[in-house]
Amino acid sequence: MPARRPYGLAAFAVITGALLILPGLIVFPMSLSDRRSFVFPPKEWSFRWYENFFSDPGWTETLMNSLQTAVVVAIVATVAGTVAVFGIVRHNFRGKSVVVGLLLAPMVTPIIILGVGEYALFLRWQLVGTGLGFTLAHIVHAIPYVVLTVSGVLMTMDRQLERAAASLGAPPHKVLRTITLPIIAPGIMAGFIFAFISSFDETVIALFLSDPNFRTMPVQMYASMTQEVDPTIAVGASLIMLLSTLLILLSALVFRRRYAKANR
């Protein structure tokens, strides 16, 4: 087939990308405003809202809460999701499709319903307003991301590699440790990053589970936005965007290196 450069498609992709990202990018200039207002573009620039952010325990504490929750969620969801994926991909058992459905359900269930349900349950268990409550709720929400990314790499992995390792004298646990896990590591890494982000910027469930004792940063931002005019929120938003972007970039780089190698 003659290679015709798809300029039209490229333009379409760029426009779509711009529409997706530009409304979000507005928080960066706003966080640098020197006025207590959301006028855009700002007339004067300053770091006063960054100062405000890092000196106000209301912000720093919730940032730390968010980070801690997200790290624990990412670790637990990655381990649990990866183990589940091995069961699903490598074995056939009765009710497998039900298990797959359950594992992916949190992704398709309207999140407000998850939030209401978990709120009702956690009220009874006295987990509302606790770090543990947030962590458990977010793990449920994060597992589908891990299941999707890890099952993708595990399904495409060449199982002959494992047979080769066995023929060379490696017992099953060593095959897993020295062959399978290193090869699917990029998928596990991606799952970890998605799980982290899904918890870090999760707002709806967090609104239900927050109380004055424990809240995460998205909840703090929501409160700040609805109750006062305070550009500090733009600082928080900028930080979230920066962190998420860095993590996504990192995973993209890891994947690109793998693909470049695989396709050479």
Partner: peptide, 30 residues
């Protein structure tokens, strides 16, 4: 007997070098 105890060398149709190891590491594996 499990395959890893049989002490048999095997070469497969599809190239089965471990992609995350160098050539020498592959040969050193057994």
């Amino acid at each position: 007997m499990r395959p890893h105890l049989r002490n048999i060398g095997m070469v497969f149709q599809h190239f089965t070098l471990f992609p995350h190891m160098t050539v020498a590491e592959n040969v050193a594996y057994p």
